[in-house]
Every structure is written in structure tokens, then in C-alpha cells.
Amino acid sequence: MENTSSVNRVAAFILNWLFLMILWLAFTSSLAIQELLVGVFTTALISIFTTKLFSCCDISILSPVKIFYIIYYLFVFLFALIKSNFDVARRVISPSLPINPGIVKFETKLTTEYAKMVLANSITLTPGTLSIDIIDNTFYIHWIDVQTTNPEEAFTEIAESFEKILLKIF
């Protein structure tokens, strides 16, 4: 038990370090040896102190299947974002302001905190919905054009397509 948890901690540390190093490379956008050395030391120092806070997922996130699902999720999300923007543009421009706002709730099957955060952020950017609060497994969503107040139907309408993919990633 002791052994596996320490292995997990080292894996989380390496994952964190890798992520910060990619961020460093994008920020400096140079491959000079001095900058690389400074980057390696700084990111290692930062990830020693912050691994406890950012242990979002274990090392299996780097497996090809999960990376494929992450990219697929990004495409689904981008499509929803563009659709939601045309939806908002239509509502804002039309003179009669066609809105029917209200707050609905639904339950999710996701368990980890990070998955819930990603789902809440995605919901905020998809057509006509804005997440207000998450209490345990219940999402409270402000909906600009309410079609149903039934939790199950609201879930299929708003979140099902995202949750299906997120369950495979986390």
C-alpha cells in the first residue's frame, strides 16, 4: 500500500513537471540551452511544491486511447461553442429578445472533482446554459430558453454528449 502510493506520487510529480515544461517552452518559445536549464530547474521547484494541489489524474492519462478521447472532446466542444455563439447572436440581434429563462437541475454520474469542473465549464460555453452551482452530484443550470424542467430530460438535452466522453477520460 505504502509502495503504490509513493509510486503514484512520483508519477503525479512527473506529469506536473512535464505539463509545466511544455508551458515554459510555449512561453519562452526558444531552445537556447541557458533558457532550457533555467526552465528545468524552475518547473521542478514549482512542481515539488504544487503536486499536492494539482493531482488531477494518474499517469494513465497519457495512454493513446485517452489522448484520442481528449482530442475528440475538444472537437465536440469547439463545435458546441460555435453553435452557442450563433445562438447568442441570434437572440441579441432579434428585436423581440426571444428568451424564456429559468433554472433547472440534474444529476451527473461523474465522481472526480476535475471531471465535474471540466463538465461545468463546458456547460457554461454551450448553447444557452450557464452553470450556477454544483452541490455533490447535482448541477444547477441557468437556461436562457427552458424547454423542460424535468431533471432527466434536461440532462439528455444539456450534458449527455459531454459526459459520455468524460466518463471515458477520467
Binding site: S84, V88, V92, P101, L125, T129, L130, I132, H142
Partner: peptide, 28 residues
């Protein structure tokens, strides 16, 4: 789209609808 977001902030009736228009349109 940035302009439409600002227009939505002016036209919508309450805070939550303003947030909807402001967030989505300015993000994209």
C-alpha cells in the same frame, strides 16, 4: 462577436442573461 457580446450586455434584462451573452460571445 466581441461587439455582439457587448450589445448583449446592454440589451439583456437581468444579470444571468447578461452573463450568458457576455461570456459566450466574448470567449469565441
Amino acid at each position: 462577436f466581441l461587439f455582439l457580446g457587448a450589445l448583449g450586455i446592454v440589451r439583456m434584462p437581468d444579470v444571468y442573461n447578461r452573463l450568458q451573452a457576455g461570456t459566450k460571445a466574448t470567449t469565441l
